[in-house]
Amino acid sequence: MVPVHEKILANQRFHELVARRNRFSVTLSLIVLAVYIGFVSVAVFNPALFSAPFLGTSAWCVGLIAGFCIQAFAFVMTGIYTLRANGQFDRLAREAIRGGQA
């Protein structure tokens, strides 16, 4: 008897799922990493920009506002992933499993 996982591995839908989900999660990870690396680089290599007044006149500096925004942005990114993974990707996963067990 062929193990279930080998049937699933032979299923086109499974590879479609993995490829799509990986492309999505790698893209989102790279975006988050790029934003974070950008933030750290400004703090290390351009402290003047980091501590410049926000919008030119505010007492709040650019780095602080950017930091708060990145924290909000992290939340939004997890929301985007969860929405798509819990809908579209889980549907594909169910189809892949059914294909493998059939």
């Binding site: 999660s25 989102l28 990870s29 988050v32 990145i70 992290a74 997890t78 992933y81 969860t82």
Partner: peptide
């Protein structure tokens, strides 16, 4: 920022 990466 670690959290989105843990999720993905």
């Amino acid at each position: 920022v670690g959290w989105p990466l843990i999720l993905f």
